[in-house]
Design a protein around this nucleic acid. Structure first.
Length: 372
DNA sequence: TCCTCCCGCCACACG
DNA sequence: CGTGTGGCGGGAGGA
């Protein structure tokens, strides 16, 4: 035991002695970016964890972290031991839609029918019930009252999904990790330690999601407290002014000033409201008509936002559709070259490609193969 | 100092 | 019992 094992740097090969140690270079976010750029290519459909670990020069443990959150967002799918299937960015819209539907259903008991009885489900989070089949289903747990799935209900993947659901199903558009942790911890039966641990995990998740531009770090107005804002995908196409999922003009969303009604509306989510929300330990469900979109129309109702760099061409190459309501302007304004890292720069051009192919497919409104 | 969050020990889940 | 997974939290880097 003991054995300090001064694993100080001493990386190994690449006989470069410089770069003693830089924490930034080891971040999950960067690793995620590298992972994505490494595997998002034609022909890639199977990913081996060992392969990824060695290629990315990290320990396997870290790969698990990345893979788990990527899977929870639909980009990957576990196929077998040591093996994942690459689903690609095109799978994201569907995955998020499912999450949103799931979240709304889970949080809001019986819509707004009668029965105002709030069904505070026994334990807490216990969704993830893939009613949409998918493959083999677990042994149905009829007596799911005490779902002691132990391990799984604390997984990074589930945490990621719940975290994302907070953005998709709530009318909060800015959440601090601390609040998210408390919210996701379910009923107030948590010590400061459990919260700390949860927050640590959320940091990990946030880093990965940030690297994919699903969320962005900001500061809560007034409080100055760091928080994250969702800017992943836009929501329903025909939604009235209100829609916290839309990222249009999100960049210029500043507090203190009386902007438009829409903006003000979003900001009403103040501490007071949040306090109440926490007090009831019940998330305010986003008040949208919830038209129950039965049709899949997966990608159609979503569009990638922040992935594109400022000067990206109109995607559809020569296609140049006319009815596309892509908010390129906001995308352009939301993009900012904050990366001084060559790898990330590379990654961006890479994203654009993947994105373009995906989008053209959706825009073409042609045969969108979904599911398998 | 406080905020971030990487590292890797070691428990748990199979086969 | 060996191997693949991946919770978990100490404690070091960063602002």
């Amino acid at each position: 035991m003991a054995l300090p094992s001064t694993h100080a740097g001493a990386v190994t090969e690449s006989g470069s002695k410089d770069i003693p140690y830089c924490r930034k270079q080891k971040s999950l976010g960067l690793l995620c970016s590298n992972f994505l750029s490494l595997y998002d290519h034609d022909g890639v459909e199977s990913i081996g964890l060992d392969d990824a670990a060695s290629k990315l020069g990290v320990e396997r443990r870290r790969i698990y972290d990345i893979v788990n959150v990527l899977e929870s967002v639909g980009i990957l799918m576990r196929k077998a031991k040591n093996r994942y299937t690459w689903k690609g960015f095109g799978a994201i819209p569907k995955a998020l839609e499912d999450l949103k539907r799931e979240g709304l259903r889970d949080i809001v008991p019986a819509a707004d029918t009668s029965c105002s009885e709030k069904i505070s489900d026994d334990e807490e989070d216990e969704m993830c019930s893939d009613m949409n089949s998918l493959s083999q289903n677990d042994r149905s747990d009829s007596s799911s009252v005490f779902k002691r799935d132990s391990r799984k209900e604390k997984s990074l993947g589930l945490l990621t999904q719940n975290f994302v659901k907070l953005f998709l199903c709530t009318d909060m558009d800015m959440i601090s990790l601390d609040d998210a942790a408390k919210l996701l911890l379910g009923d107030g039966k948590h010590t400061s330690m459990t919260t700390r641990t949860k927050v640590r995990r959320l940091y990990d998740i946030a880093n990965v999601l940030s690297s994919m531009k699903f969320i962005e770090k900001t500061h809560h107005p007034e409080t100055r407290k760091p928080a994250f804002r969702w800017l992943g995908l836009t929501g329903k196409p025909d939604n009235r002014t209100d829609d916290s999922l839309i990222l249009s003009d999100s960049k210029k969303r500043i507090f203190g000033t009386d902007l438009t009604n829409a903006t003000t509306k979003r900001l009403r989510m103040d501490e007071e409201r949040f306090k109440i929300l926490k007090a009831h330990n019940q998330v305010q469900v986003k008040h949208e008509k919830e038209n129950e979109d039965e049709r899949v129309t997966a990608g159609k109702s979503y569009q990638f936002g922040p992935f594109a760099p400022a000067n990206v061409p109109k995607v559809g190459d020569s296609h140049d559709g006319k009815g596309k309501d892509v908010d390129w302007e906001s995308l352009a304004s939301s993009y900012r070259p904050q990366y001084h890292n060559q790898a990330l720069k590379d990654l961006f051009s890479h994203f654009v490609e993947a994105w373009k192919s995906w989008y053209s497919e959706v825009a073409g409104k042609g045969p969108i193969q979904l599911g398998s």
